[in-house]
């Protein structure tokens, strides 16, 4: 298939998606819309973490930290001075921040850039260690961020968090950012730079002996991944209308890791589909946490039962589908074309 045909088809798909978004914004049930928004944010997070964990093979547990930085930075920039006043009643917000208010888009970008900066600062020393050690160091980073945000009261309002954030996040924003994330990361992965990243994942020594600068490329993956995590954090803050440091705990990172493992490491399609599916499943599975009557036995509602189900699901995946649900299969127009051809043959 020609490249121009593929681009054309992709553009058409994007237009169709936006038409869907237009009607959804008008008619869709707000509850479903909210879940869909959450799902798309999960998708952004999963795709960006996949660049670090799946394609470059650097097992990072720091994603919630990058998200927190993005969420707080953007929230402090797009909140109105009045809301900030009412939030910071214990200790006032430090000087220039309490008067600034900039548009949502720029707030997201700056949030992303701050997270990317953190990705660079963390990446530089962290990437001297490998494997399990890297996981521990990045986990440490994410906990340090949480602890810092809990204590920097004059910037983050401490454990009280920020409340009453304006709701800018809607499907237009989440869909657009998901598309941008997918395109950018897909392009990186398919380029010569992506080959270098995958080479590092497969064999660091061989990659280095082909002249690939390990450090530079690992930091590259971290910075790009952190940027999109920061943006996703900003979107999530505005969707939930409230953020506090403890919502960006390691549990959040685990959820994202679960999504990329279920979808398949190094599989963008898997990350997106499972990310959106995860949000819906999380809502749908709420019933398991309610009190239930099974065969006459009364079971009281246990909080966290949903996560148990996901754990079982994860274990089953690891046991029976090592490569995740999607494995190596990526969405491609060639694949779609083949599907149609097969149908025709059958008829």
């Amino acid at each position: 298939m020609k490249r121009s045909t593929r681009v054309l088809l992709s553009l058409m798909l994007i237009i169709v998606i936006y038409i869907f978004v237009y009607f959804s914004e008008l008619h869709m049930d707000p509850f479903i819309k909210r879940i869909l928004n959450t799902g798309l944010i999960y998708a952004i997070l999963a795709v960006s973490l996949n660049l670090i964990n799946g394609f470059t093979g650097q097992f990072s547990l720091g994603h919630a930290g990058f998200m927190a930085i993005g969420a707080y930075t953007s929230a402090l920039l797009y909140m109105s001075p009045e809301t900030k006043m009412s939030n910071f009643f214990m200790i006032p917000l430090i000087s220039p921040l309490d008067r600034i208010q900039i548009p949502f888009f720029w707030a997201l970008i700056i949030g992303g850039l701050m997270a990317a900066g953190a990705g660079f600062i963390v990446g530089a020393p962290c990437l001297r260690v490998r494997g399990d050690y890297l996981a521990i160091v990045t986990y440490g980073f994410s906990e340090i961020i949480r602890s810092l945000f809990n204590n920097l009261q004059n910037i983050t309002n401490g454990p009280l968090g920020l409340k009453g954030l304006p709701t800018y996040t809607n499907l237009w924003w989440t869909v657009s950012w998901t598309i941008v994330t997918i395109i950018v990361i897909k392009r990186i992965v398919d380029s010569s730079y992506g080959r270098a990243l995958k080479a590092i994942r497969d064999d660091e020594v061989a990659a280095e002996n082909l002249g690939i600068n390990l450090f530079k490329h690992k930091v590259l993956a971290f910075v790009v991944g952190a940027f999109f995590a920061g943006v996703a954090g900003g979107l999530l803050g505005s969707l939930l209308m409230t953020i506090d440091p403890n919502s960006f705990s390691i549990l959040f990172t685990y959820q994202i890791i679960m999504i990329i493992l279920l979808g398949g490491l190094g599989n963008i399609t898997g990350s997106v589909v499972v990310g959106i599916g995860f949000a819906f499943l999380m809502e749908w599975l709420r019933f398991v946490e309610m009190p239930m009557h099974i065969f006459g036995i009364e079971i009281p509602g246990i909080l966290g039962m949903r996560m148990l189900i996901f754990s079982v699901l994860l274990m089953l995946t690891i046991l029976f589908f090592r490569q995740g649900i999607f494995g190596q299969r990526e969405f491609s127009w060639e694949g779609v074309a083949k599907l149609f051809q097969k149908r025709k043959v059958k008829e």
């Binding site: 010569s192 080959r195 270098a196 995958k198 080479a199 994942r201 497969d202 064999d203 020594v205 061989a206 990659a207 002996n209 082909l210 690939i212």
Partner: peptide
């Protein structure tokens, strides 16, 4: 030491 998850072509392209 080949990149085992990559194709023959990709190995050289890298």
């Amino acid at each position: 030491r080949l990149f085992s998850n990559m194709s023959v072509k990709e190995n050289i392209m890298t």
